[in-house]
Design a protein around this nucleic acid. Structure first.
Lengths: 102, 102
DNA sequence: CTTGTAATTAGGATTTTTCCTAATTAGGCT
DNA sequence: AGCCTAATTAGGAAAAATCCTAATTACAAG
């Protein structure tokens, strides 16, 4: 969970996931959209997003396609909605930490 | 927006906002809930949350009460829902503070 | 004013993040 | 093979985050 929020804490990475909302893109296309940073820097951000589970990759010939993983977004949404009182805490045995009188 | 996500990227700070969901608390009560970090460290986290707009403060005698600011949470939710295709992009006057209709 | 409690700020050591250039891996093509 | 494009890794400098102890501010009560 920390990694997801941390990943979204950087403007460049938010911009990337926004771009991916329209559909998968290759590293090159993503990197080309940033004229203010180098390709390796973009790769670094993509790695951060991947480590957070926010994107997945598929190789396509010489290129690599990055795809948004909605399920990771849903996790974060769940936490926030719960914070707003609009969702119940996950009754997962794993992460249930708070006694929530809903 | 970066500050909100960054703030939520730390487990201690997520735990604090979760605690505040039940209602406002004083610094002392919050700090007392963390036996693994010192009071100044907790203050640091509270400052981060405040800078992000996630909490507000009111002095109450010698104590200071921290209150969760739902509106900041809503902003973040808006971004994520939009990412999931379940909400329209905010009518983007640069950085819409509050004016997000439904 | 002095003392005690609540809370924050100051200063600094350590770790992590960020972002560059240079080098490298991976794949396609002739 | 050799070469070109696509993409990532390596290495390191600079900046930011983390978290401590010590000092300080804010407030209430005697």
């Amino acid at each position: 969970m920390s990694q997801v929020f941390k990943a979204l804490g950087h403007p460049a990475r938010r911009r990337i996931v926004e771009m991916l909302r329209a559909g998968p893109m290759t590293s090159g296309d993503i990197a080309a959209a940033f004229d203010d940073m180098t390709w390796p820097t973009v790769t670094g951000h993509l790695n951060a997003l991947k480590d957070a589970g926010l994107v997945s990759t598929e190789r396509e010939g010489a290129s690599v396609r990055y795809r948004l993983r909605i399920s990771a977004v849903e996790e974060a949404v769940g936490f926030l909605l719960e914070l707003m009182g609009k969702a119940e805490p996950a009754t997962d045995p794993k992460e249930a930490k708070n006694g929530n009188p809903a």
